[in-house]
């Protein structure tokens, strides 16, 4: 039995494609959890990163937060949150947000810090106000790096959302956890393949977004 045999068995089994326990439903749950976590993380990290980067204050504090957050094991944090908060979505969101905040925060800060001062000065010279400078000059220039931070966070969140299944939530991790309990390696491998596939799709999506959203003038520079 090769690995690929298990994988194709999983995807050929019709039963895996229907109902609340089927692939489409689990995939939706997985995407839903990931988007919520990413949204919360971006809601926290983008403004903080923009402000600290814009003013240039708090860089060392950010470094400390980043290192500390990376040192926390997501699965461990999840189990701990389950003990403290019980079942539900919140104990899952806390480790996922903790995972996603540092990359977004750090890259946003870094993007704002490393802006070329010349276009900013030019914009001011043209009579743009601070808000116009931020939204029309600084943000578009910072976008490539900010997007790379978001991408990094998104990939990690999509991969890690699998642990939600260990505290009885859904998502693609369900296949892996159930399969391990039921001694059904086909389901385990099938679920794992789906998670990896979703992570790769995430990379592709960010690549596409980068193509369309980033201003050509900025893109050429790198």
């Amino acid at each position: 039995m090769s690995l690929f045999q298990f994988i194709s068995d999983f995807f050929r089994d019709n039963a895996n494609w229907h109902g609340a326990y089927g692939i489409p439903h689990r995939l939706l749950e997985h995407v839903e959890y990931s988007l919520i976590a990413l949204g919360i993380a971006a809601g926290i990290a983008l403004p903080v990163g923009l402000v600290t980067g814009h003013t240039g204050r708090g860089g060392n504090a950010l470094a400390l937060v980043a290192t500390a957050a990376r040192a926390l094991p997501s699965y461990g944090l999840l189990v701990l949150m389950f003990f403290w908060l019980g079942l539900g979505l919140t104990p899952v969101m806390i480790p996922l947000v903790a995972l996603a905040v540092p990359p977004i925060l750090v890259t946003t800060y870094e993007a704002m810090r490393t802006l070329d001062p010349a276009p900013v000065d030019a914009a001011r010279g043209m009579g743009m106000g601070p808000a116009a400078v931020l939204f029309q000059v600084e943000l578009p220039s910072a976008l490539p790096l900010v997007l790379s931070g978001l991408r990094s966070a998104a990939i990690q969140v999509v991969s890690t959302t699998a642990i939600a299944a260990t505290v009885s939530l859904g998502g693609l991790g369900r296949f892996v956890v159930d399969g391990l309990y039921q001694q059904n390696y086909t389901i385990v491998v099938g679920g794992a393949t789906l998670i990896a596939g979703l992570a790769l799709v995430t990379i592709a999506l960010f690549w596409l977004v980068g193509r369309f959203v980033v201003s050509p003038g900025v893109r050429g520079r790198r």
Binding site: F82, G86, L87, A165, V167, S168, V177, D178, Y181
Partner: peptide, 16 residues
């Protein structure tokens, strides 16, 4: 709802 083998997940799911 998949939980655990009579462990804390099961107990808290029943409780809440």
């Amino acid at each position: 709802k998949p939980l655990d083998a009579g462990g804390p997940l099961t107990v808290s799911a029943l409780k809440d």
